[in-house]
């Protein structure tokens, strides 16, 4: 039990640091950055205490905000996807996810991709809407959402593939 908690704390810290120090300096084509810190939210256990989960997501977002000087942009987007995550879980894995039979690490790659993509796109759309905060720049928001989402999804899938333990 304590092993899982340590794992999650370590994941939290590593993701925030990697995000702030490495990934935010990529600026591919001038503005495209992946935001893989949402892996923490994606991989959080399903049979959880939801209040704690929502609060942790807020903490995650606000830590990233602290590093990137972006007000409450990441916090808002993270809390939102944490709250609506059950909807996406049900959509991607079917109704069975309730019975805790689904393990994200061992699930079917297609289902996992749907789940990651949906959450990433929603997160990025909210993130960039809040960041730009200007209705006359809808195109800029959509452009940033599209390209950063692709980047984030690819990285997230790769990372989970590399770090997932093979079922024996």
């Amino acid at each position: 039990m304590s092993n899982t908690i340590t794992l999650h704390i370590a994941r939290f810290i590593v993701l925030v640091l990697v995000q702030a120090l490495v990934l935010n300096n990529i600026n591919f084509l001038g503005y495209i950055n992946p935001y893989i810190y949402i892996l923490f939210i994606l991989l959080y256990p399903i049979n959880n205490n939801r209040m704690l989960f929502i609060f942790l997501s807020f903490l995650l977002g606000i830590s990233v905000d602290l590093f990137l000087d972006s007000g409450g942009v990441h916090a808002g987007a993270s809390v939102f996807i944490a709250y609506v995550r059950p909807v996406f879980l049900k959509f991607s894995f079917g109704a069975t996810y309730d019975h805790q039979t689904v393990k994200i690490n061992t699930s079917d790659i297609g289902q996992r991709l749907t789940y990651f993509s949906l959450i990433t796109v929603v997160h990025h759309l909210l993130l960039f809407s809040l960041e730009v905060f200007n209705t006359s720049k809808v195109l800029l928001i959509l452009k940033k959402t599209l390209f950063s989402s692709i980047f984030t999804i690819i990285l997230c899938v790769l990372i989970t593939l590399i770090f997932s333990r093979k079922p024996k």
Partner: peptide
Amino acid sequence: NFLLFLLLFSIAISLTIQSHSYHRSKFIN
């Protein structure tokens, strides 16, 4: 759950709004 979400989300939004006005983005930096 919903109330906690609403609370945290409104905190985030208000921080965002503050960060968009000059000289008021003081809390999170």
